[in-house]
């Protein structure tokens, strides 16, 4: 089974040189720590920044400079600041190439649910609906099963959805999976020590297994 750090590490291998990337809150934020240094990429923050840098030192803290998770941040050289309408114009307009975000559920046709649990306090969707409706490549980082052991990879989402037919790839603590254009989770890789049978058993949606499934290497 992969730790949260390993999920982030595995997703970082999907990043390509020259990409502009939006990282969601949680595991996706950790991806930044594992992007190879020889790749030139730019991190977008939907509250109006291209070029997120490392967290600041105590001396560098600027209350006028935060990320979408409201954390204090710094800017890298060559950053650009813009307003929220421009930020989502670049998201919807296809100028942000990769979106990595968490999910509560993903369905076998690529629907994602990650903003609302009926009966619980609803905090809102923030920028998630805009991001999933627009990014050309969406990777989901999540645990394969809920805390109570229920599969989060389903035939259909049971929770209110955030976007339809948008997820391309999922990295869980057990596996790397891709969404088949006609529906289904294509099993691509297994976490170290995790068997295909275990993944089969913990995937409620249609699982497509073709040939030998390689184990991830760390």
């Amino acid at each position: 089974m992969l730790s949260k750090q390993q999920i982030a590490q595995r997703i970082a291998r999907e990043v390509k040189n020259g990409q502009y990337i939006n990282l969601g809150i949680g595991i996706p934020t950790l991806v930044a720590n594992y992007i190879p240094e020889d790749l030139e990429i730019v991190l977008q923050s939907e509250n109006g920044l291209l070029g997120i840098g490392p967290f600041p030192t105590e001396e560098e803290i600027d209350p006028d400079l935060i990320n979408a998770g409201k954390q204090t941040i710094t800017m890298v050289k060559g950053s650009a600041i813009f307003n929220s309408a421009d930020s989502f114009a670049m998201i919807r307009g296809g100028h942000v190439h990769l979106t990595i975000l968490g999910a509560m559920e993903v369905s076998e046709n690529g629907d994602i649910a990650n903003w609302k649990i009926p009966g619980k306090m609803v905090k809102g969707m923030g920028g998630a609906m805009d991001l999933v409706a627009s990014a050309e490549n969406i990777i989901v980082a999540m645990q394969h099963c809920s805390k109570s052991g229920d599969s989060k990879l389903l035939p259909e989402c049971t929770l209110p959805i955030t976007g339809i037919r948008c997820v391309k790839k999922i990295v869980t603590d057990l596996a790397v999976l891709e969404i088949h254009p006609q529906g289904g989770f294509i099993l691509k890789e297994r976490a170290p020590g995790v068997s295909v049978d275990e993944i089969k058993q913990k995937t409620a949606g249609k699982l497509i297994i073709e040939g030998e499934i390689p184990e991830m290497i760390f």
């Binding site: 930020s87 969707m125 998630a128």
Partner: peptide
């Protein structure tokens, strides 16, 4: 919100920004 004293309209952030724009 839970007691019904406050109404809330939740809107995707980009849609909110664009509606204002």
């Amino acid at each position: 919100l839970l007691s019904g004293e406050l109404e809330v309209d939740l809107i995707p952030q980009g849609t909110l920004a664009e509606r204002v724009r």
